[in-house]
């Protein structure tokens, strides 16, 4: 039997014949129910555009003013960079580095990887060189890209200080809030195995799935 025509469920290892699935329908593993294919028309374009949006929002969040605090005549501004550098003094410096990676660098890297893999396919080109490997990295980075968790942390922190001081929200705050929505939309649009299959088919030279 040709190994190209069977796939193993990534969760329970059951073998399935890899058939073409109709657009907007979902194929699930018969044994454990994991989604094996969920092709949607324009999914590649949607994911690529959402990733680009997220990347722009992330850059905006890192550059624009973030939060400002005012109380009893004192005021203080904090940028996202200040937040990252919060642990930078003393023995906690590595945590600053980690925070920078978790909330800015890794999400940015993940979106770059998604754009690199999916944008050429969205406009009907052949996948870029090493696209499959880059996509693997995008998947691996996913749990470590915590920009959307950061914004919830901001909300909690704001409640903590709102009692004792007036807080001013800068454009970077709203960029992060929008990023939360865009991240959820992106993640729900991605079907791992469908992206894989499309990558495989497009790389082998056929133009349409």
């Amino acid at each position: 039997m040709n190994l190209d025509q069977i796939i193993a469920c990534p969760v329970c290892d059951a073998l399935h014949h890899d058939q073409d699935v109709k657009k907007h329908s979902t194929a699930k593993c018969a044994r454990c129910g994991t989604v094996l294919a969920a092709p949607k028309s324009g999914a590649m374009t949607r994911i690529a555009m959402l990733s680009l949006t997220a990347l722009i929002l992330l850059i905006a969040a890192a550059c624009f003013p973030f939060l400002a605090l005012e109380a009893q005549g004192f005021s203080h501004r904090a940028s996202v960079l200040d937040t990252v550098m919060a642990f930078s003094s003393g023995p906690m410096a590595p945590l600053s580095l980690a925070t920078g990676f978790l909330i800015v660098l890794l999400p940015a890297a993940r979106y770059c990887a998604l754009i690199y893999t999916l944008a050429p396919m969205a406009i009907g080109w052949r996948p870029a060189p090493q696209a499959a490997r880059v996509y693997t990295w995008a998947e691996r980075l996913k749990p470590w890209a915590m920009a959307e968790i950061f914004i919830i942390g901001v909300a909690v922190a704001l409640v903590k200080v709102s009692g004792l001081a007036r807080v001013e929200l800068g454009p970077a705050f709203w960029a992060f809030a929008a990023l939360l929505v865009v991240t959820i939309l992106t993640d729900s649009a991605i079907c791992r195995l469908t992206v894989r299959k499309t990558l495989k088919i497009r790389s082998s030279g056929q133009s349409e799935i």
Binding site: L67, L69, A71, Q72, F74, S75, H76, A78, D82, T83, V84, M85, A86, F87, T99, G153, V154, A157, K160, V161, A165, V167
Partner: peptide, 9 residues
């Protein structure tokens, strides 16, 4: 991190 960056009055 946010509290440290923000509350420096």
């Amino acid at each position: 991190a946010i509290l440290t960056a923000l509350v420096q009055l």
